[in-house]
């Protein structure tokens, strides 16, 4: 039985939480609050943002964000407050730095690579003779 319990603890339940605090009075601050808490990863509960987690730590971090917003901190200040303490791991949107270069440039690289192949293939094909004896090209999608 002991082994069983150990196994079960390894499986985190995705528990949902409602923010128990009242909305911030300033709708603009509230919107920033919602964005920020959705982009910060909860460390205890694995793959959920702190906005949707009921872990005590997530609640504390939500309060922290709220207080910093009320104190006039910028988004950047709040994010760096979090990364100073927990590392880049808390950011769902990784920062653009040297080690994430490949990640952020991936769309460009892949499109460039694919685009080159595409252009070359189409050019090659356009230069080749077209076979006009196909029987069923008309109706088949």
């Amino acid at each position: 039985m002991k082994k069983m319990i150990a196994v079960l603890l390894l499986m985190p339940l995705a528990l949902f939480a409602v923010d128990n605090n009242d909305a911030l009075e300033d709708p603009e601050l509230q919107e920033r609050y919602e964005t920020i808490t959705r982009e910060l990863r909860c460390l205890v509960c694995q793959n959920t943002p702190i906005s949707d987690s009921n872990a005590p730590l997530a609640e504390d971090l939500r309060n922290q964000v709220r207080e910093m917003l009320l104190a006039g901190s910028s988004n950047r200040e709040i994010y760096s407050y979090m990364t100073d303490r927990y590392g880049d791991f808390v950011l769902y949107k990784p920062p653009f730095v040297k080690r994430t270069l490949l990640l952020w440039l991936a769309p460009g690289i892949l499109l460039l690579l694919g685009g080159t192949v595409l252009v070359r293939t189409v050019r090659q094909r356009a230069a080749m003779p077209i076979d006009d004896d196909d029987e069923n090209e008309e109706e088949i999608e």
């Binding site: 205890v44 005590p56 730590l57 504390d60 971090l61 303490r85």
Partner: peptide, 13 residues
């Protein structure tokens, strides 16, 4: 008690 200093230490578990 309130876990606030813990945040400064980056405690998560």
């Amino acid at each position: 008690t309130d876990g606030l200093v813990g945040i400064d230490w980056g405690v998560y578990g």
